[in-house]
Design a protein around this nucleic acid. Structure first.
Lengths: 209, 209
DNA sequence: CGGAGCCCTGTCCGAGCGGTCAATATGGCC
DNA sequence: GGCCATATTGACCGCTCGGACAGGGCTCCG
């Protein structure tokens, strides 16, 4: 049977067995590529080389599989990024670190990330959405906090902080729509490029006197 | 029966009857809120107050309804934006016009736009995807063209043009994830804010001598 | 040996899906 | 009136879906 690639944050689950990791990993890939509705329990079972019933032995239902992926990756992202923001650096560098850390997380756990973010919104019936939103808010709040400090420190202009945060998050959240990991720049390089453009602006500096 | 709001670009179809407009309008709303798979033909029929069979009288299948919405809105967007870019203005103003025109289109035909962009990618089986991609490329090419001219004119730095284009498109494409039309700024105002931040950068200017 | 507990399977079910079909209502045109 | 095209309907089909269920092998322990 196909060996499960480490495409999931390990601590997204507690004491996960090989089989559970495999199911979550394959599910994340399928959810990311075909969407939640487009992925059947049969698809998951086939991808894992097991029977459909075994899925129900390890998970209560389809929603639980998805929730483990989505909630786990959201929490992981928040912790991952928090750990990578240097506390003593200048605010602008912390903004940059926020962006590159997010890109690195995206690069590592691509399928889980895509599955989580692309199915995050549409279904209001999804269980545990509150928890997901909580982590999402914490993640977004982290960025706004750093942005506010940068304004206070005079490093960036007194722009609308939530709006600036949305601009930055947009660039990162939209990446999975066009990013192909096998070619071109790495996600982290792209995030660095985005930071440069957003921080310094596209405008050409006035010709030197 | 519910009167169909003008939530679709009228010229997306040729000689559309009231009924067809209604079906397309309700479908766009449902596709946008519940996704393609999450919207059944029964849902559409119920939303229109008609029988399911009537849908098949006016459209060949579910895909055709979606294709009309997605392809129509993509073509409309391209033409809409093209028409709103002043040919004689400075490149930077044309970049700005590109952004605000996109936002205005988004504001007008919100459901069709969301349905189109959010379901654009996942399903490779969708018919007429080639045409949609063609219009999408033309739309994106339009932006890159203007960006390249801005570089040439010395108005913006010699940044990576495709990357800068993606940054701009990301900000616009992600809007529908958080934008609530009933409160806060209009989409056009948001686009203006984005342009300001991207063009001038977040960085605070050096203190005046 | 025996049974407890886990991993795992094949089979069945009702529901909802996209789509078909024959039949009917409607309304302009001769 | 008769006629024809269009608009509209409800009954129906085959299929796949998520999920339920009973049970089969395996291992460990008394």
């Amino acid at each position: 049977m196909a060996r499960a690639a480490p495409s999931l944050p390990a601590s997204a689950v507690s004491e996960p067995t090989e089989r559970i990791l495999q199911i979550l990993s394959e599910s994340a890939r399928l959810f990311a590529t075909a969407g939640y509705d487009g992925t059947s329990m049969r698809d998951i079972a086939n991808a894992c080389g097991i029977s459909k019933s075994l899925l129900y032995h390890h998970f209560a239902d389809k929603d639980e599989i998805f929730a483990r992926i989505a909630l786990g990756s959201m929490r992981e992202l928040c912790e991952f990024v928090t750990a990578r923001i240097p506390q003593d650096a200048a605010p602008s560098l912390r903004i940059r670190a926020f962006m590159t850390a997010t890109a690195e997380y995206f690069q590592r756990y691509r399928w889980a990330w895509i599955a989580s973010t692309s199915s995050f919104w549409n279904d209001p019936k999804a269980r545990r959405q509150k928890e997901r939103i909580m982590w999402r808010d914490r993640y977004e709040g982290l960025l706004r906090q750093v942005l506010a400090e940068a304004v206070e420190a005079g490093e960036i202009r007194a722009v609308d902080v939530p709006m600036a945060g949305r601009l930055i998050l947009s660039s990162l959240n939209w990446m999975h729509r066009w990013y192909k990991p096998e070619k071109g720049s790495s996600a982290v390089q792209i995030a660095e490029s985005y930071f440069d453009m957003i921080f310094h602006g596209l405008k050409a500096p006035p010709p030197a006197a």
